[in-house]
Nucleic acid binder design. Sequence first.
RNA 1: GCUGGCGUAGCUCAGUCGGCAGAGCACCUCCUUGGUAAGGAGGAGGUCGUGGGUUCAAAUCCCAUCGCCAGCUCCA
Length: 638
Amino acid sequence: MAKVTLPDGKTREYPDGTTVREVAESIGKRLAKDAVVGEVDGKPVDLFHKLSGDVKLRLITQQMPESLFHLRHSVAHVMAQAVLRLFPRTKLAIGPPIEDGFYYDMDPEKPFTPEDLEKIEAEMKKVVEADYPCTRADVLRTEAVERCLKEHQDYKVEMLGEWTDEKVSFYTQGDFTDLCRGPHIASTGRIPAFKLLRATGAYWRGDEKNKQLQRLYGTAWWSKEELEQYLHRVEEAKKRDHRKLGKELDLFSIHEEIGGGLVHWHPRGSMIRHVIEEEWNREHVKRGYLMVNTPHIASEEIYKISGHLENYKDLMYGAMLIEDRPFRVKPMNCPGHIMIYKTHLHSYRELPMRLAELGTVYRFEKSGVLHGMLRVRGFTIDDAHIFVTPKSVEQEIIDVFRFAVEWLAKFGFKDLAIYLSTRPEKSVGAAEDWERTQKALKHALDTAGVKYEVDEGGGAFYGPKIDVKVRDSLGREWQCSTVQFDFNLPSEKRFDLAYVGEDGNRQQPYMVHRALMGSLERFFGVLIEHYGGAFPVWLAATQATVIPIADAHIPYANEIAARLREAGFRADLDARNERTGHKIREATLLKTPYMLVVGEKEVAAKQVAVRERAGKDLGTMGIDRFEEILKEDVRKRT
RNA sequence: GCUGGCGUAGCUCAGUCGGCAGAGCACCUCCUUGGUAAGGAGGAGGUCGUGGGUUCAAAUCCCAUCGCCAGCUCCA
């Protein structure tokens, strides 16, 4: 007998060999219809999986988001099936489900073209219509190797060679069989909606030394409506793309003639940057940071000492000779900050010492990775280097991390992806230093009560770190905040940093690199997408545009704009010879928070008619009242 | 850097089979002084990314190259 415990705690008994599907049927018709796969003792299984003994069973239905994972995995198989029908000599690699879809890496004789994608999609529809049942065969690993060898599935053979399981499984649907752990949906006819999205290159096992395979991306959903909604969501997200909005809102530009990855901030973008920088300066001074400024080029000597020339050379621009001495454009701010630290012998009483700079650096990035403002070659890091004693390192890290979270929250970033990266195999520094600082980082995260992932061994060779990533409009993560320990630069063989401890002896301080925004360019790019270009009043380049109805009202409109600027607000006057509706449309498209329309009535009553960018009419009011609204918006950062 | 795709006016984009380079917006001039998302008329603006090739003839076909886009690798 099979004793089956269901999620509600109830237990049912069935004859040995009863399938998951039969259990579902015995409970209810609807459940049997909606069940996609089962989960036995926490492990996903097929509906035809036979039950025996004492088991916990959960049925995963279409209504559960995780069922999409299994659907998409199965659609990846259908895609591979279609590809093999059309291009029989294709070799298959791996085809997993991912967020919102799936992909399959394969090695065809010729790379896929967009037309191929259409053909593949059409062939997939035939597979779905044929409604092939998906079946499983467990075989010995050695047999599987033989089979894959015979079919020239080289990548599968390679994978099998690395697995240690005695038995592996194949899944078959119609004329197609694939090495796969499963489980799969019951039959190909149960795929209601899918679409192939793109074909790209992808290295085998993600290593650029390996052969580049072709990756086909697709998406699949339980209904045509959901598929449409997904495609619509992607379209909407594209409208928030910072590169598109950057052009439309006249925020920044990048010029082929000057070079890729080199950003030009236009007046409207630069205004916002200035607001951010002002806030940044204020918050740093408040927290005891000391502002410094360091040069943009430096003698190679400094990068020999720092080790950058040794470890970071690929990202640095070539040397320029100045009076026969090689100089480099700086890729990092740390050497400069360290030299400032080293001009004095410091007491433990002075630590933590926090040197901060909006420091512009230049790094060589391969042309293929440049991406608007999010990945560039010249950027300004909101950098700080903190020199701290082992004793106070824990509190300092808590403060730094809290600072980062508070800073991001100021801009409405609440949904953060946080990673703690620990000691890698190849590393410098004493084990106890690693241990102590990893503990401090972990403690800071736990104190803040945030969710985070631990990336074991993912730290830099010189120290452990916390990274905070923010998502762009298409869901791609970009690293912004970072808190990184460095056991390399302070060491004897590098800069040999020191402070005098309580006992009067020379000690080596810990050094922490940290950035809240990462770089102003990246942060601004993500910020544009985050707000969809509709910046809150405190950030908006123009907070209010004054719109005179006719020429006769220009002097009064001018007065209003001047008065607002006098009061510290950013106000424009649109005195062009255009109709009111035209000016309102343009100010709205520029996402200016407020439009102040002034005509005969307003001039006479000494008032302004206030319209919000969303279209809401706030009515007429005195300029004092409007200034209060602005003040309140700025205070609340809305 | 790699694989695929795309480069036409400042912007967004048409351009059929190889046969005189187009539209809307923006810009300039004039008219209009208009009350909450585009007032009217006229004008100017292009070496079709760049360099070769095929052809009587190339935006269009071929090759190379640069840039951009998607993904991979790498990264703030």
